[in-house]
Nucleic acid binder design. Structure first.
Length: 1009
RNA sequence: GCUGAAGUGGUGGAAUUGGUAGACACGUUGGACUUAAAAUCCAAUGGCCUGUAAGGCCGUGCGGGUUCAAGUCCCGCCUUCAGUACCA
């Protein structure tokens, strides 16, 4: 009987689905007995965004790992929750809708179908009965619900916890806001209980809005004109949008924000409590960016103004020789002297024009302008000139710094550039070349009352003195900004919000979900409103409690609804909890469900979500914990980042049509004007004859430029250009590298003609591409897999050719899970032939060959060392070495000619998490009627591994020379004697007497001579 | 710049506490089977030296060190990847 993997895999996938083998049971459905006794285990994958490109081989890597773990846990007797779903709101579906008019819901549905088919064919043990989709109203009802909960909460700094807004109102009514220590948007003027009482309702609402955990605020946002939307900081990479690479500018807009900054300290501290990769925690720490220092107020001379600065080095305050404000700082206008006004304004205008990206690209240029104003040093009372400079960022700290040139390189450079004094306040340090920033070796000098102190003591003393003066205090500053929560998009969760007199109102929870309205167009409206502005049925009737036509808006009973939608991370910040009770329409999840499943035990996904999804989810979980909704303030106990699978991009080299260099220096593409002259034939001749035969260019690289005249016979070219205004000398060619689909290239890096021609529809392709001796030049590079790079490899072809079990084993065999690695199918035959060998252990031409014969000592040894190693590997997430272990086991059992069921049956259970289909089939063939997936994992028995002797390596001065088989119970003295008596030892020593003999029992013998 | 991770044959990668470096695969070479191919099986395979064998020398990015013994520990460099950055 042969191993027909396609049939076997289809058969068992159907069996698992039909019999709901992987359905996880909630306590309410426990049948009594068995399940109750089982401990729970929750294994989660980051759910995918269902893109139109379908699954590529990189996606399943993490899923296979988590599936192995989930299956292993089932074998170990756990009630395993292993769900899957779709993060189905998002930009690509919307972009597609804009282009085609196709409703995003339809494309999304189609994409999900493809994903599901692809996932199913790999044989994952997901409990699909719990599937969630973020774009499903039944799901986003609860995303809206959490938004309302956040709106109805405020954060008390004193108890470091969120509370219901009603408690804040109570405080306001009783004592005003003077005693409240809460996070809020702006500095709120103090008011008394009496004043609160006389505020209008709107005033009260405005004040409360500033305390809420989600609030409306005019904030400077990252606006991406090309996408027509606001982006969060983590959606911007190198100053351009992560999706599409479009430029981003700063813009002021009224937006919903999430007060994640309130949780900054807890998000930082609690990293200690979770088992997440150190690198990921470090990324989050950097992102949160806590700095401890002081806020210091400097009086501005001859005015009532004060400049507030944040510094981490209050100990260097006596070294402050100037101050720098960001150009956007609100005091700049107020303190600038008339003489400096023109210069200051010119500078502000110039910096405003520069985009964030320009500023970042140009770090070296030092620029700034003196305001003409002076601040007063809090201690020496000396005047300090106040400058503005764009190296000071408006968005960090107070947007102003006290500049200490001797202690900070940027201040140093600024001072040097503008010839400002650089007083040295460090003992025994030379600052003639650069600033001195090493805190640990600092001894302060020339600094009045802190002379001779180290950094730590001086800092303390300065803060105390500042507090005494009422000009400063110790302060902690975070880099983490509040997260903008509004997107000017269609395909996202609508807010459950309507507006009365400009003030936001939450829709009652019982009326959720507020469904996404239909629109004609998915683009912003002509007046610049978000796409929901196109909806005609998008108003809230407070009497009927329903969404009604916009025409009915009267601002008495029918009000306008919010036009923004929520960002991509909204839906993914709570899905892990919803899986616990996904169909509950009355609650986000039942108490019973959350009490049982508690939190995610193992979460597997990419590290690219470090500062987005993983931080926002932790934030929401902490909020829900404060509200008593969840039992843990961290949602995932352990997290593993699977490494990215990279693609091997393939390139060919194209000769670009040629450019004409005008006097002005402007390059004009020639093709446009020379269609008939500058034709394919012409190009063909250049490329095939002259470049190659003349050996003018041996190795072409992208970007190479060459002159037509250098590579072609001048006279014959002139014919072509006769009668044109173009001068042959000025025609240039360039070579560019273009991506070609990887499946057009064979293993020897040669183009497969038919496939290539099919892709490169233009029939004359051969004339434009660079060749050597008629062979196209092809190069390869490792890059991220992406559709646009044509390097995407789909798992479908592999499943078809080798089977899902081969794919699973191969992805694991590729290397350590957490490591990035390029995809290369070359080795897949190795794991595939392993599976065939495994099969042959059970079947030969005559049929099943497994017998009840007794197993040998060697058989047992092989089995038990395999059990031991594989179990250790799973615990350490070292799946690659498990695959090797299986190979060794099968190789050994094959050479031992093992047919014993006693060995071969448990072996299947050990292999089954990795290669479940073949294991299930063979298990079934051995006569088992129950699925292998819940079979008990075989117990490791060390007695089978106990050896009586050891092949000791005998080394001389640390170099192994030969081995000796010696009994393990032999003592050191006897071993030493035996080794020294050996002829080979004598040969090695050549008559010398060993200085020392080291015997490590059970390990090694080393002779020092 | 800072932070984190990593550097081992032709390739992917093993080596769990310092104890036989290169497991397991891929690839390559030779052989068997076959009309042939595929598939399968067998053997060899880090480099160098010695005609072969036996054996020797060199080998885990580089330079030092600790140790009987270092891929593993310590010090100093180099390189690559990832994250982050006028963060005061």
């Amino acid at each position: 009987m042969k191993y027909h993997f396609n049939d076997i895999e289809a058969k068992w996938q159907k069996f698992w689905a039909d019999n709901k083998i992987f359905k996880a049971t909630n306590p309410s459905s426990f049948g009594g007995g068995q399940e109750e006794a089982k401990p729970k285990y929750y294994v989660l994958d980051m759910f995918p965004y269902p893109s139109g490109a379908g699954l590529h081989v990189g996606h399943p890597l993490g899923y296979i790992a988590s599936d192995i773990y989930a299956r292993y846990k089932r074998h170990k007797g756990f009630n395993v929750l292993h769900p899957q779903g779709y993060d189905s709101f998002g930009l690509p579906a919307e972009q597609y809708a804009i282009q085609t008019g196709q409703h995003p819901a339809i494309t999304t549905e189609e994409n999900i179908k493809t994903y599901r088919r692809q996932l199913d064919q790999i044989g994952f043990s997901f409990d699909w009965s719990r599937e969630v989709r973020t774009s499903d109203p039944k799901y986003y009802k609860w995303t809206q619900w959490i938004f309302i909960q956040l709106y109805n909460s405020w954060y008390c700094k004193r108890s470091q916890q969120a509370f219901d807004i009603s408690e804040l109102i109570k405080v306001f009514v009783e004592e005003g806001n003077t005693g409240v220590n809460a996070y809020c948007d702006k500095e709120i003027e103090p008011f008394t209980a009496k004043e609160w009482d006389v505020f209008s309702n709107k005033q009260q609402q405005e004040i409360l809005l500033q305390y809420r955990l989600t609030y409306l605020a005019e904030s400077e946002v990252n606006w991406c004109p090309a996408l027509g939307t606001v982006l969060a900081n983590d959606e911007i990479v190198n100053g351009v949008s992560e999706r599409g690479g479009h430029p981003v500018i700063r813009k002021k807009m009224t937006q919903w924000s999430m007060r994640i900054s309130a949780y900054a300290e807890r998000l930082l501290q609690d990293l200690e409590t979770i088992d997440w990769p150190e690198s990921l925690k470090e990324t989050q720490r950097n992102w949160i960016g806590k700095s401890v220092g002081a806020q210091v107020e400097f009086r501005v001379q001859s005015s009532e103004f004060r400049v507030s600065v944040f510094t981490t080095r209050p100990d260097t305050i006596f070294g402050a020789s100037f101050m720098t404000l960001s150009p956007e700082h609100e005091l700049v206008q107020k303190i600038t002297t008339p003489e400096q006004k023109a210069e200051i304004e010119a500078y502000i205008e110039a910096t405003a024009k520069r985009s964030e990206r320009d500023r970042m690209a140009d770090v070296k240029t030092i620029s700034g302008v003196f305001t003409g104003a002076y601040a007063e040093h809090p201690f020496t009372k000396q005047p300090i000139p106040i400058w503005i400079g764009d190296y000071v960022l408006a968005s960090y700290g107070t947007g102003a710094v006290m500049s200490v040139p001797c202690g900070d390189q940027r201040d140093y450079d600024f001072a040097k550039h503008f010839n400002i004094a650089i007083p040295n306040i460090f003992e025994g340090v030379d600052i003639s070349q650069e600033a001195f920033a090493d805190k640990d070796t600092t001894i302060i000098a020339n600094s009045d009352f802190i002379n001779g102190l180290n950094h730590k003591d001086a800092t303390k003393k300065v803060i105390l003195a500042l507090e005494k003066l009422g000009q400063g205090e110790g302060k902690i500053n975070f880099r983490l900004r509040d997260a903008v929560f509004s997107r000017q998009r269609y395909w996202g969760e609508p807010f459950p919000v309507y507006y009365v007199d400009g003030m936001p109102q939450m829709i009652d929870v019982e009326n959720l979900p507020i469904r996404l309205p239909e629109v004609e167009k998915y683009l912003p409206t002509e007046t610049g409103e978000p796409p929901l502005g196109n909806a005609t049925v998008w108003a809230w009737d407070v009497k009927q409690c329903s969404v009604v036509s916009n025409q009915l808006i009267d601002n008495k009973t029918v009000f306008p609804l919010e036009l923004n939608t929520m960002p991509g991370w909204a839906g993914s910040s709570q899905y892990f909890n919803r899986y616990m009770d996904p169909h509950n329409s009355a609650e986000i999840f039942s108490k019973e469900a959350i009490d049982y499943w508690q939190q995610v035990d193992l979460y597997i996904g990419g590290s690219e979500h470090a500062t987005g999804h993983l931080l926002y989810s932790r934030f929401w979980q902490k909020f829900m914990f404060d509200k008593g909704l969840v039992p843990h303030d961290e949602f995932a106990k352990k997290l593993i980042n699977q490494g990215m699978i990279l693609g091997m991009s393939a390139f060919v080299y194209r000769i670009n049509g040629g450019y004409y260099k005008y006097e002005s220096g402007f390059d004009e593409e020639l093709d446009v004007y020379f269609d008939n002259i500058f034709d394919d034939h012409f190009l063909y001749r250049i490329v095939s004859f002259d470049l190659l035969d003349g050996n003018l260019i041996e190795e072409v690289i992208a970007g190479d430029k060459f002159n037509l005249i250098d590579i072609f016979d001048k006279e014959s070219i002139k014919e072509y250009f006769e009668g044109t205004p173009f001068d042959v000398d000025k025609i240039t060619f360039t070579v560019s590298k273009i991506h070609v689909p990887v499946d057009c290239i064979d293993l020897k890096n040669q183009i497969i003609d038919e496939k290539f021609a099919d892709w490169y529809k233009d029939e004359i392709y051969s004339s434009e591409l660079f060749r050597t001796n008629g062979v196209f030049k092809v190069s390869r590079e490792v890059e991220k897999m992406s559709k646009s790079k044509y390097n995407v490899v789909s798992p479908d072809a592999i499943c078809e050719q080798y089977g899902a079990d081969s794919l699973r084993l191969y992805e694991m065999f590729l290397g350590p899970l957490e490591q990035a690695k390029p995809w290369n199918t070359a080795g897949i035959t190795g794991v595939h032939s392993f599976l065939k060998k495994l099969w042959k252990l059970y079947f030969d031409d005559k049929g099943l060959k497994v017998t009840d014969s007794e197993s040998t000592k060697d058989n047992l040894k092989t089995l038990h060392k395999t059990i031991k190693k594989v179990e250790e590997d799973i615990i350490n997430f070292s799946f690659n070495t498990s695959v090797s272990t299986f190979m060794i086991a099968v190789n050994e059992l094959t050479s031992q000619k093992c047919t014993s069921k006693e060995i071969l049956e448990p072996l299947l259970i050990v292999i089954s998490p990795y290669a479940p289909h073949i294991a299930e089939e063979l298990w079934n063939q051995l006569g088992n009627t129950e699925s292998i997936s819940t079979a008990k994992f075989p117990k490791f028995n060390k007695k089978h591994l106990i050896e009586s002797s050891k092949n000791y390596p005998i080394s001389f001065n640390g170099k192994m020379r030969f081995t000796m088989e010696l009994p393990l119970d032999m003592n050191k003295e006897d071993i030493e004697a035996a080794v020294l008596a050996n002829d080979k030892t004598k040969e090695q020593l050549q008559g010398r007497t060993p200085k020392k003999v080291i015997v490590v029992l059970g390990k090694i013998v080393n002779i020092v001579g």
